[in-house]
Amino acid sequence: MSQAYARRPVCGRGADLLAVEEPLEIRVNDRPLAVTMRTPGNELELALGFLYTEGIIAGPSDVVTARLCTDTPNVVEVRLTGPLDIEARNFYTTSSCGVCGKASIDSVRVHSHHLVQHDTTVVSRQTLATLPGRLRKAQRGFERTGGSHGVGVFTPSGELVLAREDVGRHNAMDKAVGASFQRGQLPLSGRIALVSGRASFELVQKAWVAGVSVIAAVSAPSTLAVDLAAEAGMTLIGFLRGDSMNVYTRPERITD
């Protein structure tokens, strides 16, 4: 398996350590389903998180086996207990886009089975202000290369439950969701999700599907991200930098 980092020459001054970007094919029931450009590592988490956030699986009982192929590089095979019950389409996701290759606008929307609008989780502004620094300390890939996105899952008291990185922000979220899936920790009720960059529609949607009621971003959200958070009953926070933050939806979950 490829390493997550590799050196490449820089004209006139040695070499830089860069995050590796390689394709990963996800096969389900012997059928090629998706190809995503990702940083090597945590492949099973990525595959299971992708299948969960795309609504293809709903729980561990839906999965018979998930394995990284030893004879074919960069391929994960997942076998389900039942048939692959989705519309006929393949996914091709780049490191910057997690919804590319879907066959229609309708297929972009994945609805959550979790009623996050009723989640009574609250978190203080003071705790929120500490989260970016705690996630940054866990981002070893970013520290080494400056080229990876991070997603952290926190308790309302600010404890880091897990962190995942990838060149694709959607892959980092899928890895975090997949790790929670493997640990039997879904839905992520009572948890705070933090993304190291901007909050896009796809990241908010994946967090919603995973049962997250509070999602924060270091950078800006998009209009669709705000609209989806409002529809889902999620609390969406942007520009979380030090003591400064913008709360776009459901501000009653943020305490002083």
Rank of each mutant, 00 (worst) to 15 (best):
S2L: 11
A4P: 06
A4N: 08
A6R: 13
R8V: 02
P9K: 06
V10K: 11
C11V: 11
A15F: 13
D16C: 09
P23T: 11
P23K: 14
E25A: 15
D30C: 09
P32F: 13
V35R: 04
V35I: 10
T36M: 10
T36L: 10
M37R: 10
G41A: 12
L44T: 12
L44V: 15
L44M: 14
A47V: 01
Y52I: 07
Y52M: 09
T53E: 13
T53G: 07
I56N: 04
G59R: 11
P60V: 15
S61Q: 04
D62F: 13
V63G: 15
V64G: 00
A66N: 04
R67H: 09
L68C: 10
N74M: 05
E77P: 00
E77R: 03
T81G: 04
T81V: 02
G82W: 07
G82P: 07
P83I: 03
D85N: 10
I86M: 07
A88Y: 02
N90K: 09
S96F: 12
C97S: 14
V99D: 04
V99A: 05
K102T: 07
D106A: 15
S107G: 09
R109Y: 08
V110M: 07
S112F: 13
H113A: 07
H114G: 10
V116H: 00
Q117Y: 03
H118D: 07
T120M: 02
V123M: 00
S124V: 00
S124N: 02
T127I: 13
L131H: 12
R136H: 11
R140N: 01
R140K: 03
E143M: 05
R144A: 11
R144E: 08
G146C: 10
G146R: 07
G146T: 08
S148W: 14
H149S: 15
V151F: 06
V153Y: 09
S157N: 01
S157G: 07
S157D: 03
E159C: 03
A163M: 12
R164N: 11
R169Q: 05
N171V: 15
A172V: 08
A172S: 09
V177A: 02
G178K: 02
G178V: 08
G178E: 03
G178Q: 02
A179H: 00
A179K: 01
F181S: 00
R183S: 14
R183D: 15
G184T: 09
Q185K: 14
Q185P: 03
S189M: 07
I192R: 04
A193I: 13
S196C: 08
S196Y: 03
A199D: 03
A199M: 06
A199P: 02
F201A: 02
E202V: 01
L203H: 14
W208Y: 08
A210G: 05
V212Y: 01
S213V: 03
I215Q: 01
I215M: 10
A216L: 07
A217S: 12
S219Y: 10
S219T: 05
P221M: 04
P221L: 03
S222D: 15
S222V: 04
T223R: 13
T223Q: 14
T223H: 10
E231Y: 13
T235K: 04
G238I: 08
F239H: 05
M245Y: 00
T249A: 04
R250H: 15
R253F: 06
T255C: 00
D256H: 00
